[in-house]
Structures are given as C-alpha cells and as structure tokens.
Design a binder for these strands. Structure first.
Lengths: 334, 334
DNA sequence: AAAGTGGTTGAAAACGATTTCAGTCTATGT
DNA sequence: ACATAGACTGAAATCGTTTTCAACCACTTT
C-alpha cells in the first residue's frame, strides 16, 4: 500500500541497501547516487516504516511515561520537561494516565513491556519495588520521580524534601508562629515522609515540642486537605499556621477557612509545596516551596537517553535539584 | 535476548502458530493445549514483541496527539478525555507538544507519518489544510479540535462558539452593561472568529451598535490579555464590561485591573471562556463559558477508534457539544 | 602483469510476530 | 469398513527495514 524501500530502489536503479544507507546518512554512498536516491525519495514521498525499523534495530526511540493524572500541573510540568529533551533527541513519548489507580498503573506497565518503548519514566508511582525491578531486569532503562528505589540501576531526580520542608516551617516560625499544623500526603509516599521529617527538624531546632496530633494526612488532594483541616479543628487544637505538603491540599485549607470565616493570613498562615500554577492566583497568594519541575523532567530524560544511547556513560544515578521557598501573602501578616 | 514465541512453542511442544493463536484468543485451540501454552507463557514471562506484531498487522494500536502546550489545562483536559477512551480500547497515545511553534508542529507531523500511529488528533493546529489533507491521503485517521477542516474525512468535535459568545455577552447586557469590550484570540483562529461573531450578534439583538475599536486581540494568553486591556484604555475608551475569548486572557485582565486600581466587578465586569482550572480560584471568581473538554476529547477518540476498527461504520463526521455559561462573581455586582 | 587498495555497491539473512493453506486426527454416519 | 466432516495443528510465507558479507570497479604499487 505505502511506498516502500524497494519501490525507491527500483525507481532509482539501486539496491534497497543503498537506499537504506542514504536514509541513515551512511558516508559510503557516492554523492551522485545519494542525490539521485534523495530525489526519488522526495518524488515518491517515501517515509520509512517505523515497525520494520524498530523490529530490525530492536529499539523504538520512544520513552513511556506513567503519571497519576495528566491534569495536575505538577505532572504536566514534568512531562513538558521530559518532552522537550526527548524531542531534541528525536525520541517520542507515550503517556499513560493511571487516574491514580495502582491497578491501572500495573496494567500500563505490562502494556509497555512489549518493547514498544526503550525506557520508562514512572512519576509518583505506586508500584512495588519488585515490579519496578522486573522491568529493569528485562532491560528497560527506567527513571523515577517522586519515590525512591533502593539498590538498582533506576535513575532518579528529586529535590531535597527535608530541606524544603524545614525552610518552609522555619519561615513560619520566623513569622512568630509556634503552633504549626502539618498536612501530609499519602502516609507511605516518600515525599510525605521527608516533608514530615523536615517539619519535625525545624521544630526541634527552635525547641518547639513535636506533637503528633498536629499532623493529619490529606492524600495530596484538595478534598483531603479540606477534610484534614476539619479534623484538626474538631480535635479542638489551637494553631496559627499550617504547613501543607503540597499546594493542592492548601486549596482545601483555603476552602475550609472560607467556610469557617477564618482569615488567611491573619488568623492562619499557610505554606504549601510545589508552586502549583494556581497558587499565584489565589487570594491571598499562596506561599510555597517551588520545585523545578521542568528541570527535573528534563534532567531525568537526559539521563535516561544517555543511558539508552551509551550504556557506558559515566553519570550519577541520582540527581538532587534545588527547591526554593517563595514567600507570598498567605504566610505574612499585612 | 528476550524470550520469543518459538521459545514458548518449543517448551510447550507446539508450533509458534498455536502459541500465536492462544495469544490472540483464537477459539480453534483445544482447551488443554491452550492451558499448557498459557502455563509456559507464564513460566517464561513471555511478552509478544510489539514491533513484530505491528509490522505484520500493519497497525500499532497507537494514536498520536499534537498539542500546542501540555501545561495548559484546556489541552490537558482534552488529553485526559482522549486517553480515557483510548485506554478502554487498548490504544496507546503518543503526545507531541509543539510549544506553540508551527514549524515544530510540522516536524511532528512528519515524525508521526512513519506508521508508528494509526491515527492522529490535532489540537488547535496551525497546519495548512493541504498538510492535513496529505496525512488523510496517506491513510491515517485524523481528528481535529479547535479548527475546522472543510471538505474531507477529518473528524471534528467542537462546541457552538457563536452561541457561547452570545450567551456570555447577553449575560453582561442583562447585568446592565452597554459598553462591552471584546478580547479576541489569534485573529485567524476559527474559535476567535466565531466568538467575535457571537459578540456582535448579541449586541445587534439588543440594538447596541457594534464598534470595532472595542475589539482587541490578545493571542489567547495572559500577557496578550494584559496588553490588550492597556491598549483599550489608552484609546480612551469607556466600557464597563469585557468579554474575553478565553480565561487565560482574563487573567491578564485581572492583572491590568489590579495595577490600575480598577475593581472587578464593581468597575468592570469580566466573562471568559473555557472554564480553566484557575478560574474558580480567582478573586473574584471568574464567570466563564464552560467547554466540556473531557467529553470533547473522549468523543473524538471514540469516533477515531470507531473509524480505525471499522471503516464502514456510520457516524457523523462533526459533533457539536453543548457549552454552558457559568456565572460567578466577576460579572455580578454584589 | 599481478597484486593490492579503497571506495562503492548489492544479495541475502535477520528481526519476531501473524496468517494462509494444507494437512492430520477423531468421530460419525452409512 | 469406508468415506467424510469437523476439530485441531503446523510449515512456510509475509510484513519492510537494517546489516553482514562478499564482490566489483578503477587505480596504484610492485
């Protein structure tokens, strides 16, 4: 149906081999032959068939990305970074949106294990270590963001969550707060854990006792943040500030405050993490810890592609990028 | 390297043909044989090679999506809809982010023309009609959102932009406004044009004369909206309301108003289009015309897949979905 | 004149699945 | 006992490239 390499070869009066060489810029071809072949390719509008090429070369120039939800700006910014690097290196990306469902995530992993991608990037993955390990063993290059994998070849990019959290909480303390609540994400997510650690460290450094009842889990989403706030208040706890492990949950905090007539930042100071796109548009604007999401995606893609292009290249398995506290209006009294 | 179909065949003491039949649920296989084969597949952790399968079957079960920018919530919501349907039908999707660059978009089109996808969805495409036509001629199923293609087999889903705009402007008029500015998108984008038409129609119906100097283009982005507002004011025009052809530009309107100390909605009523995720979080919350973005993506994917599965199926080439005015605080005086 | 050299080309095998077509086997009816 | 249909299986061709290997040609060197 489509025009194929032998059609070009026939018309150009050369062998398919030569056409292939022209396509792949093999310098062995005499320039006159090359020109002739190129002319015919143009004439016939020939495009090489990817499946045939993939089959023969045993690679697809494609990277698979598994994300929890493509609508979340945090993930999209990562994807943008990955995509930008991938495009520059002539890689394609296939996106799998798990809808925050671990079963679907597992299915996607299987779906991608058919050599239709050369490597995979797992974002905020809920897969077990052994599931990930198996993919590595099958020879896929894999990178993760938003979790840690011990003892393997898995590439990783992240920010120093302990430090980020500490900075955020320090900032609240400097604003005069002593009673600071903490909204964590999924209890077992790496990021949650580190941010909790940073929270505790900041308190310790200022000799504020750590009280576990000030900690509530909000599952990293708006509703979770909202409900967590209600729970905190229902406990009868007094606090003047809250550190939310991400901006999404902070949205829930805003909603809860609005309902209860609590003024931010007058009655309650709020700091989030991620610098979600909406944060700057909230009233008051939300103080947050910015994550260099684009850069994280870009860097991880770079490392992954390095590995794909050259197994031998010397590079760090783990990269830590800097995050940065952005002080806006939600944490500073007028 | 990987285990392949003959390995399974050998171990199960059957032919590759039979293994293939088992894989593809061909009912001809005796159930005892099937079980044996399945056991070996499980034992060997065999996964069929996609490239080989694609080559033989001449299809990839993959849909390509070309979008201007994956960070924009409008596009992401579409992608989510597409992805949801695609997943249900066992299709993969590859995403191409053109970064709003028509040259890059063209390159992506070429990149996808190698039979690595069975169909393509172009979102807010800047390609020429003939470029799109060529893809159709090559036998790809193609769908578009956010532009119109005349005279071809290209699938399309959209909302009635004329009506949406008219409703939005009617709403402003009902709130007592007579002098209403209009912020258009790209001058030559279909959507811009239709929304302008709706704006004019609404004015006409209320016997308000249409004055072209009330129209400024803002290129569909925040900065464009901001600058368009400044230009309108600089002209010395008096107006008490503005209809922005999308929410993104309305963000620019908010910024401009803040800078000039103009209060929304007291001094200026604002209505946007798209129901961007941020709109509900703005202060005041932004009135807007909601587009069923998820549904649009889902529907287009459905039609595209229908076409891929069965060339003969009877279905409309163009689907129009309903949009809906959401009145929030930016357009209603307290 | 024979042998070597470097530049250029092509024939054929390979990649790993599916599909066509031709069987083989079993059971059934006569 | 034989023919025959139906159930099941396998050999070989096929998809469209890339890659290996051998060969060819035109020169130069000995």
């Amino acid at each position: 149906m489509d025009v194929k390499i032998v059609d070009v070869a026939l018309k150009a009066k050369v062998s398919p081999t030569t056409v292939s060489r022209v396509l792949n810029n093999n310098p062995l071809v005499k320039s006159k032959t090359r020109e002739k072949v190129l002319r015919v390719i143009e004439e016939l509008q020939y495009v090489p068939n990817a499946a045939a090429k993939n089959l023969r070369q045993q690679r697809t120039m494609t990277i698979g990305i598994i994300v929890p939800d493509v609508r979340v700006s945090y993930y999209t910014d990562l994807v943008k970074g990955i995509q930008t690097k991938a495009y520059a290196e002539k890689y394609k990306i296939v996106i799998c949106d798990t809808n925050n469902d671990r079963v679907i995530e597992s299915e996607y992993l299987k779906l991608l294990s058919d050599r239709s991608v050369d490597g995979m990037i797992l974002v905020a993955s809920m897969l077990t270590n052994s599931e990930v390990q198996e993919i590595v063993d099958r020879g896929y290059a894999v990178g993760v963001i938003g979790r840690s994998i011990q003892n393997s070849k898995v590439l990783n990019v992240h920010t120093d969550n302990v430090k980020s959290a500490k900075e955020a909480v320090n900032h609240l303390i400097e604003q005069g707060h002593r009673d600071i609540a903490f909204l964590s994400g999924y209890p077992n997510a790496m990021d949650s854990y580190d941010r909790l650690e940073g929270y505790i460290k900041a308190l310790k450094e200022h000799e504020i006792p750590f009280n576990p009842s000030y900690v509530e889990s909000g599952n990293f989403n708006e509703t979770g943040g909202y409900e967590a706030m209600l729970r905190l208040w229902d406990k009868g706890l007094k606090f003047t500030a809250v550190f939310s492990a991400n901006d999404e949950m902070a949205l829930g905090v805003y909603r809860a405050c609005k309902e209860r007539g609590i003024s931010i930042p007058r009655d309650l100071a709020v700091v989030g993490v991620d610098n979600d796109r909406v944060s700057q548009y909230l009233s008051p604007t939300l103080s947050t810890v910015n994550q260099p999401k684009f850069q994280m995606g870009f860097t991880l893609a770079e490392k992954l592609i390095n590995r794909l292009n050259d197994e031998e290249i010397e590079q760090e398995r783990v990269t830590v990028l800097e995050s940065e506290l952005i002080v806006r209006h939600s944490s500073v009294k007028a």
